[in-house]
């Protein structure tokens, strides 16, 4: 068992990044994943514990031009209660509604949810359909360096991302969705709180001239990482919304889920049930997007 010998809670980003430069710090924000994981032994603390919550400029939700930026330490509750997001990206608010419980939403951060890289991370599918990117910062050659990685390429495997140990996720950014963009999120679980999604599906599309365009579909808990369901997207791109062909469109999209979703059996659900739920949810969110 590693003992924590250093605890840091810097106010400035550069201080934090310098502390991380040796790649050996454990980053703490809400702690809602870190605490149970270290408790269960799934993860070990390193000697240095770095609390990033107090860093100025790492929180908040803002728009600059057509860019939306959500700081890494923004809590799920802040997303849930943000009136601007409710207007321009309600799918994020919807996902935040279904996130864990009130207490956890008050502590958990969006950055933590992404870095935890759980296939079941609730904020990930909606951010994937917003085509979000993550901003990674590190201290190199005496200065703060940042890079932007598309979220879709961020996840490697359960708990693993392309973020290097010396890097800190500072923000998630996405383009303000077009006015005709509609996004919907659905996760499973009968329990109104504290339900780890067996499967989650987010679907977004622009609706214009009676057709779907720019279709983006994301799924959680159907593969080692959350993913963009490219086959379902292709099946839907450009499809008309008219009643005559809609059932066929749904059937094609539902059938295409088999190409994208490769779920496994585990303690929470069987592969069969996950595949079944994906089909149910894709149909459901499609109908919601269409406005049925």
């Amino acid at each position: 068992m590693q003992e924590i010998t250093t605890y840091l809670a810097p106010r400035r980003l550069d201080e934090a990044l310098q502390a991380m430069a040796d790649g050996a710090a454990t980053v703490l924000c809400g702690g809602t994943d870190l605490a149970p994981q270290t408790e269960s032994g799934a993860r070990q603390y390193t000697a240095k514990l770095l609390n990033i919550r107090r860093i100025e400029g790492l929180g908040g939700i803002e728009t600059k031009g057509d860019k939306v930026r959500i700081g890494a330490v923004t809590t799920i509750s802040e997303i849930r209660c943000n009136p601007m997001l409710a207007e321009i990206a309600p799918v994020l608010v919807e996902a935040a509604e279904h996130f864990a419980s009130e207490q956890i939403r008050n502590a958990a951060s969006v950055g933590g949810n992404l870095c935890n890289a759980s296939p079941a991370g609730d904020m990930i599918p909606p951010l994937l359909i917003l085509d979000a990117s993550v901003e990674l910062a590190c201290w190199r050659e005496g200065a703060v360096q940042t890079r932007l990685i598309p979220l879709e390429g961020f996840f490697v495997s359960p708990g693993k991302t392309v973020k290097r140990p010396e890097e800190l996720l500072t923000a998630v950014v996405f383009d303000r969705p077009a006015a005709d963009f509609v996004g919907k999120f659905r996760k499973s679980g009968p329990r109104p709180a504290l339900e780890i999604s067996t499967v989650s599906v987010a679907l977004g599309a622009c609706i214009a001239d009676g057709r779907l365009s720019n279709v983006r579909v994301a799924m959680g808990s159907v593969a080692p990482t959350p993913l963009r369901a490219r086959h379902v997207e292709a099946a839907l791109e450009g499809k008309p919304l008219d009643a005559a062909t809609w059932a066929a469109t749904i059937a094609v999209a539902v059938a295409a889920t088999a190409e994208d979703a490769k779920p496994i059996d585990d303690v929470r659900a069987s592969a069969w049930y996950r595949g079944h739920l994906v089909r149910v949810f894709v149909e459901e969110v499609l109908n919601e997007v269409r406005g049925n």
């Binding site: 149970p36 269960s40 009968p190 329990r191 109104p192 709180a193 504290l194 780890i196 303690v267 929470r268």
Partner: peptide, 16 residues
């Protein structure tokens, strides 16, 4: 036992 925790062993909660 594969689910020795309240995350995966689901008790009924108040809202249910």
């Amino acid at each position: 036992l594969r689910n020795p925790c309240f995350r995966d062993y689901k008790l009924i909660t108040a809202p249910e």
